[in-house]
Design a binder for these strands. Structure first.
Lengths: 333, 333
DNA sequence: GTGAAAGCGCTAACAT
DNA sequence: ATGTTAGCGCTTTCAC
């Protein structure tokens, strides 16, 4: 807990003004070589490192890309890995930010206005709660909000993904297939719901509203929904959950109710977060390329930063079913 | 990309001075209720949010805890999840930072001096490359550097963990057991190496330096080491890797060399990152409680922030072997 | 080539 | 109760 070394300390040590130190450190013209080396010696001796905060107040560029997430959970963590990987070697630092107040709506607006223009050069919003945000920096949204966004977006093909999930269950012989929906304000959740219904109808299975629960992409909420659904007089033999966390909740609830998975109940998730494979039994799920979503968002943001025009402003990536241990033919009556 | 709304805009809109806006927004005394509401109306109307950067320059406290990581890989991602979870509900925001220049040594020093004292109220350093760092904020290190640190630290019991790994292999009948070491500057890596040797000697197996490779906790480096080790005239029948990423590399290299895991070669990792369970076959590993490491670091940092004395400055958590699919008895000759 | 001074957006004395 | 003033650490004109 020592006092921070400021540019003033360096200036004093090198016997020059702070302005000269600034120039020397940032390699500006108009400083003699001797002065530069004297300043840099002082910098080294004192262990000086300019304050991100102070310098970002004055100069526009900071060399930092911000990723705003509501929460660090398996999905956003994968995105972060992808962003980090894509950023490495670009010279940009990565700053991931989670606001303490997760009071739903608009957390990213708050975080964004707190950081943007000053601290970060560009932002990547993960599962934002609003369609558009104003900021003085380039922004890309991953897994965006419903409504046509002005923002460039990156997402998976959730509609087809959901169809893959339901199709898989239908193939196994299931006819009563439940659905635990995701966050209704996200396009991905809406698309997964549509894909579910579409696949049902393609298989000639009538839609039963009793078999749809709200999971909000959240473990606890999904747990409630799963309990309700499995308590139905005519419960489903299979459930498709809009994300893996929800699917894992279902498996847990099923076990608590004495149902064996997959013998008594099949479960399919969505995402394929690393945790899905580790579950017992390993979760059958629809894989979306999370790291690539992150990497693509970086590509876009970097292009925007370079002043380029984006060839594609709304990227959609393919999903693929990964059959593991939570799906099997329905139990026979 | 609109211009940022500043406190001046609010002041102008509400017809008061910026100081009054600041007071109203921060709930300071000495502002009439009418003025407060007029100001807050303007804040809402304009969508004003104070700049983290600007406010942190003036006031000491920002309400942000920083986590400094070299890289976002599976291990640090788990730590982040733990930190995020522990921070939720505390009122603190979480800021994770990765420097672009991963030029080894001292990245955290740079990041820390860029952020500390100004942007963040406290820092958690994950696998730092230096023993001590000076900063004007409380700091806790997770998986710390070798050497007795002045910093409070949180880590797993790597020595016992390594013994568990080797013991498991010995139990299965292995006698030629290789080791892929971790980052030699980290205490955890040193302890895992000692645990390996200790367990070997406890089993009456002579130590063979040819069976030790350097993996640096990195996938690529470990791959090299694995290749070399498996090319030995008398190769090991089992390898213990200092982390899961390295273990996964070994499995990959073994496959490339035509060895079946676990039939021809057993592999044990360390960490139990989510990716370990998803591997094919699922990795046998020594689990360390990464999320808890993160949560404990938060506890410490919060206590420090509250001005409390830490009852324990060097926390060590227990590990446990998780036997999965990459270990089996050695092939018979 | 170098330094003085202004100012980024904000908060905290200090005046009024 | 409100406004004025002085910086926080830095970069950037603009004099010298």
């Amino acid at each position: 807990m020592t006092r921070r070394v400021t540019i003033h300390d360096v200036a004093a040590a090198a016997g020059v003004s702070v302005a000269t130190v600034s120039k020397a450190v940032n390699g500006r013209y108009g400083v003699s070589p001797e002065t530069v080396s004297r300043v840099l010696d002082a910098v080294r001796a004192l262990g000086y490192e300019s304050s991100l905060v102070a310098s970002s107040m004055r100069s526009r560029r900071t060399g930092v890309i911000g990723v705003l997430v509501a929460d660090i959970e398996p999905f956003s963590a994968e995105i972060l890995k992808g962003v980090g990987g894509a950023l490495s070697g670009t010279g940009y630092d990565l700053l991931a930010y989670t606001g303490a107040r997760r009071d739903g709506e608009g957390w990213e607006r708050r975080s964004l206005s707190r950081l943007s223009g000053t601290l970060i050069d560009a932002a990547i919003l993960v599962t934002p709660t609003v369609v558009n945000v104003a900021a003085e920096v380039p922004i890309v949204a991953i897994d965006p909000h419903t409504g046509r966004a002005d923002l460039p977006t990156v997402e998976s093909d959730s509609f087809t993904g959901a169809q893959q999930a339901v199709h898989h269950l239908v193939q196994l012989g299931h006819r009563r297939i439940g659905f635990i929906a995701g966050r209704p304000d996200l396009r991905s959740a809406v698309a997964r719901a549509s894909g579910y219904r579409e696949a049902l109808s393609a298989a000639g299975i009538p839609f039963d509203p009793a078999l749809v629960g709200q999971g909000h992409y959240e473990q606890d909420v999904a747990r409630e929904a799963a309990h309700a659904m499995l308590a139905l007089p005519d419960p489903p033999t299979a459930v498709f959950a809009a994300n893996d966390l929800s699917a894992l909740s279902i498996v847990e609830v099923a076990a608590a109710r004495g149902l064996r998975v997959p013998d008594d109940l099949s479960v399919v998730g969505f995402d394929d977060v690393p945790e899905a494979a580790r579950a017992q039994p390993p979760l059958t799920t629809v894989r979306q390329p999370m790291k690539i979503l992150g990497a693509e968002a970086v590509r876009m943001v970097l292009a925007l930063l370079a002043g380029e025009e984006l060839p594609e402003t709304h990227l959609q990536l393919a999903t693929r079913l990964v059959a593991r241990g939570t799906t099997a033919p329905p139990p026979r009556r």
